[in-house]
Amino acid sequence: MTALELLDYPFMQRALIAAVVTGLAAPMVGIFLVQRRLSLMGDGLGHVAVTGIAIGLLTGTSPTWTAVVTAVLGALLIELIRERGRAGGDVALALLFYGGLAGGVLLTGIGGQSAANLQSYLFGSITTISVADVVWTMVLAAFVVVVCLGLSPQLFAVSQDPEFARVAGLRVRLYNVLVAVVAAATVTVAMRTVGLLLVSALMIVPVAASQQLARSFRATLVGAVLVGLVSAVGGLWVSAVASYSARVAPGPTIVLLSLAFFALAWPVGAWSRHRQRLAAPFPDDPYAVEDTDEHDVAGHHDHAHGPACGHQAVPHGDHVDYVHDGHRHAVHGEHYDEH
């Protein structure tokens, strides 16, 4: 059976839609969380949403909606604690992590729900997603995409420098709350795809991979969305094909695939940053004495430096220095000067 024949199954069609939507929306929020250095906020919200799921299972209402509501409340709480003291931001996240998870497991037990029921939310069950869930996932994702793209200049400014944004007249608190609410919505979007415990991965890992190679915010965003999409769809496909021979869960496969993108991007990024550092111009000393007698001639020098001589050429003021065994050689007439 080929991958395309898999698409004849309605459950695979629904799963594919959910994967595309999640891969698209999650990195768009994630980039603002990474920018604020709040990479773990998605994780905190995921844990809080566990309690919401349990409440839904306990009361017989739709777990998707109870999860949205508790995640939004958790997001507002995190934002409140963050606003009141930067020093306590990570502690606040930790409090919510454990409170949310413990509350969820406790409530599920009280309701007598089988552990498997909660597990489908903890680790995702993209292939059992219902039509109604697909529709609501798409609606939530559309909200996330519209907010993140439409207000991206404002959200960028507020995340980059909140104080400057406030003096610029932006309603910083409103935008902070908006990011928190959108993150909470994303948690519920990704809940069925990768599960609550791995939600944050799809928000953060594609951004982490993309920013290895990007120099601008826009490039990071485009790259992150691409990595998110390819990981989500690719992970679903790999797990579907592999499931003929072994039990391969789609959620973890998607996350591991996005981590693989990071593992590929990181060495390339590290190498290119290293190259950039080596080639960065030496600072030009504006107070250098323009005295031709005052220079330091390099000793015995057989090698002729040139564009392809193998030594790193670095701009220095109006000329080029060649990095040679820890020395900086600049051409001066027939010889080289030490710079």
């Binding site: 980039i31 990474v34 920018q35 604020r36 250095r37 990479s39 439409g150 207000l151 200049p153 404002q154 960028f156 400014a157 995340s159 980059q160 420098d161 104080e163 400057f164 944004a165 610029a168 007249g169 932006l170 951004v207 920013q211 990007a214 120099r215 601008s216 915010f217 826009r218 490039a219 990071t220």
Partner: peptide, 29 residues
Amino acid sequence: PQRGSAASGVPASVWEVVASGRLTRRRPL
């Protein structure tokens, strides 16, 4: 602002950072 760095958690180009100063005169969307 008094600040050692203009950078944040995500790469941002010089143009993007400067463009954010224009938001004082731009309406959302």
